[in-house]
Write a protein that binds this DNA or RNA. Structure first.
Lengths: 122, 122
DNA sequence: TGAACACATGAACAATAATTCATATGTTCA
DNA sequence: TGAACATATGAATTATTGTTCATGTGTTCA
């Protein structure tokens, strides 16, 4: 009744390396943290949002600027900015009727650079 | 007929900062690269794959090991390993009927660390 | 050789997410 | 105040993706 070989339900094979499994299991970050990490990367996993972030690397921009730069509708951009905002990746300031967005994170640039390194690596 | 104000189709607003738009546009990485980057992050945007990668940080593992560690079916793991493989994030070696997977990238660890930093940042 | 095993994979189904469309909110200015 | 504008947002639609189920492939060993 221990966690030794009661895995038949989830995996048809016998446990090959129980010691390794146990060790890795004990070293894994907790479930919630991994879930949050996946959620963060999910935000980066869309071309529109990638483009928005890349644009904001260069300059603070209003929603309309971004829409024109990307050749997309204001609504689509606004929806995606909402996602970026709730992931705390961008911040905004209001100036009259115009809302300016800018990056709000010191890690994104590094993450993107590492990402670019990976995809450029033959 | 220049690119000045012919954007009415994609964005209902007038161009607010044409200079900024032009400058940012010229500095944006090319479309294909951005698409590839999004594809890479899409791979990280799933809890199962995140868990697999975290497990492989600790040790080389066979498919069954991973399945047991994560409490998931062999098939589900195998499908996801395929995704990780085609993103060149994991490599494998065959030893008899057992296939061992391990990480095949020097950037992932950094990307994950930056990601963890972001989500831990209050 | 053939049974057993570890793994891979195609198809189907379920769940999630991106864009569009219509419209609402909040600000400016005449 | 009310018209015009920049942005936000809910609902619907379409597209994408993860898991399961059934089965195929490749290896070992009796």
């Amino acid at each position: 009744m221990t966690s030794n070989s009661s895995h038949k339900d989830s995996c048809s094979c016998n446990v090959i390396h129980q010691d390794r499994v146990d060790r890795v299991k004990s070293k894994m970050p907790n479930e919630e943290k991994l879930y949050d990490l996946a959620d963060l990367f999910k935000v980066f996993g869309d071309t529109t949002r990638i483009k928005i972030i890349c644009a904001l690397f260069e300059a603070e921009m209003c929603v309309c600027d971004i829409a024109v730069t990307l050749g997309m509708s204001q609504s689509a951009i606004s929806h995606q900015l909402r996602v970026l905002k709730s992931a705390r990746l961008v911040k905004y300031r209001r100036d009259g009727k115009i809302v300016y967005y800018s990056l709000d994170d010191e890690h994104v640039k590094n993450i993107f650079d590492q990402g670019f390194s990976h995809i450029s690596h033959i």
